[in-house]
Structures are given as structure tokens and as C-alpha cells.
Amino acid sequence: MTDNTDTFDQALIKIIPRLRRYARVLAITADGSDELLQATLERALAKKLQWQQDTYLDRWLFTIMSSIWKNELRYRNTRKGNGVIHDINHLCDNSKENKPERTFLLTQVFKEVMLLSENHREAILLVYIEGIKYQHAADILSIPLGTLMSRLARARIILAEKFSETNETNNNAVIKLDEHRGNNP
């Protein structure tokens, strides 16, 4: 493709699965996250002339999504009862948990992250799942760097304690952490 618009459109389509994942981490339910994704795509297309080609499109899109969620959709979503997780199992409805390659550990990590508060899980998503640097993640969320890092540290401690308990209470599960070392940022 030869121009900015084509470049933008192509890049946007490639990022949609990642945006969809971020939307799911924020809104939790499939309906809520699809609504958020749709609103984000429409906003991005309406503002595409403001995107500068030499900047990161994914970060720009995450910023738009975060803003739409916090300023427009979160309240409505919560009123529909989608803000509180009543049943942990429905979170994995679309996962590959029943397929052999999806291990017990991966499912557990997914569930425990999704059970964190919204502030904690979005920080985990941006930094440890998307691999975005601390400062850029703080920019996306429009929060100070220290606040982001405090949220990350708190989330990591919560998860460490959860998985320590799992280890202590269920030795049969034998979470094979060593096999997964090296996947982390």
C-alpha cells in the first residue's frame, strides 16, 4: 500500500486481536468487551488523521480504548452487572482450557489475573502481556509512573501469595514453574 490511510487500515486490522484482548481484560464479559472494541475502532477511524505514522499505533489505540472505557462505558457496564465477577468459570468460556496444550497452570494464571482489580489487571496486561515499558504503560493509562509501578508490585505480590497457597495446599497439582521460566518479561 502506498499511503498513510492504507497503512493505517492494514495495521489496525492486525492489532484488532490484541485490542480485543485488552477490551476483555477491562470489561470482562464478551458483550461488554465487544462494545468497547467497536467504540474504540470507530473512534480510531474518526481520528485517524491525528495518528502520526512514525509513532506506535498499538499504544495510541490502547490509549483510546482506556479512555473510552473509563470515561464512557465502564459505568454503564457496571450497571448491567458486568463489573463484578460472580462466577470465575465463565471467564474461560472461550479459552482452550479443554485442549491438551492448554495447561493447568496457564488456565490458573489467566483466572487469577482476571480476578484482580481492574487497575491491577490492566497494568499486568500492558506491561507483562503486551510487553510495554513502564513509562509508556503509565502514559496509556494517564497515571504517574509511580502509581503504575505500585499497582504492578501490588498485583505481583497478590499473585505470588495466591500461587504460594496453591502450591502449599495442592502438591498434586505440581505447578511446573521451572518449565515456564524464561517466558516472563
Partner: peptide, 9 residues
Amino acid sequence: IELPFAESF
């Protein structure tokens, strides 16, 4: 504990 965040999602 080092958790496989990226792989889990």
C-alpha cells in the same frame, strides 16, 4: 514465582 502471563493470555 514467575508466572507465564503472556502465554496465559
